[in-house]
Design a binder for these strands. Structure first.
Lengths: 166, 166
DNA sequence: TAAAAACCTAGTGAATTACTTGGTTATATA
DNA sequence: TATATAACCAAGTAATTCACTAGGTTTTTA
């Protein structure tokens, strides 16, 4: 279980999806705008989220992504694991790879079991927090509200600009 | 709180120190040999561990490093934090930097508070595990025993080689 | 005085991160 | 049926981090 900013990006994006679930499919362009994450990076993250059946996609105009399960049935741990998936076969596989055996020249290293334990305990902790739990937070709701207002302003502005240029 | 292999190296090295505390100061060369970590990398890690008062050093022949506190008074979280210390002022400072304020163009991002909470909970979890706790583990003791045997063999071998070349 | 060890600085290849560019395919709508 | 929208895909890239190498100096013991 690796904890880096990559996983945070993924959780942020999934939480954005969850918060706007009632609007139908959400385009990555929308998420990119609201959360300040580059569109192409989101595409890469969502390719992995899709491969792990956390989201489903709808192509074409009006399309986008939707959660593939209910909000309470998706937890933070699997979101992080989904984007951290890698074929990493180096070292002793503590870092997510299911690879076991021989970390230090054929022998288990001093902290092998130890790190496995810590890793699985942190994993368990994060797996008990669902997207629904995150949505219920006061601070999350407040920020979400502000972001929606900001995006609406952007849309209004571009409409005016469109009118002006017409 | 970042969880990467760097922190694991540090914990492994500190645990090695703790396990050999009764032998007086332990040289980084010894730890390097036993744990398979490069000497220079250990030097860099221990510079940070020393700056955080987790270890003290003795210079000159027979010198090395010692824990600066008793084994039960040093926890995993502070070891990891010590080597992850950085002036990272990018983003919103979730990743260890005490830097707060403005992650997304002046406003807090959606998962700011969220990540602070998760981070501090994981931190608290790891701060409840001391080096003494780690030393008490069966698997740690078993690996430590094997490593000591292996190192002794290396010493014996080099003694024989020294005799032969003399 | 020689050797051992901490201590310090700089550089480096590999991996990862976050992103850019430039496409193709599928599909709803005008 | 044409067009725009959006997912999907591949390649490349600057910046950062990781783990390590190289080449010192300083301190201290024997």
């Amino acid at each position: 279980m690796r904890l880096t900013t990559k996983g945070r990006y993924a959780v942020t994006a999934m939480l954005d999806l969850a918060l706007h679930a009632s609007d139908g499919p959400i385009s990555l362009a929308d998420i990119s705008e609201r959360q300040g994450i580059s569109l192409s990076y989101l595409e890469q993250l969502f390719a992995k989220l899709r491969r792990n059946d956390l989201v489903r996609s709808v192509r074409g105009p009006g399309g986008g992504y939707q959660l593939n399960r209910e909000q309470h049935a998706i937890d933070v741990a699997e979101v992080i694991d989904a984007v951290n998936e890698s074929v990493d076969a180096t070292g002793c596989g503590h870092n997510g790879g299911g690879h076991s055996g021989g970390c230090q020249g054929g022998n288990t290293c001093l902290t092998h079991h130890l790190w496995c334990d810590l890793s699985s305990q942190i994993h368990e902790f994060l797996s008990q927090i669902s997207l629904a739990d995150l949505m219920a937070r006061q601070d999350v709701q407040a920020v979400a509200k502000r972001q929606d207002r900001e995006q609406q302003t952007l849309i209004d502005t571009s409409l005016i600009e469109a009118k002006v240029s017409a």
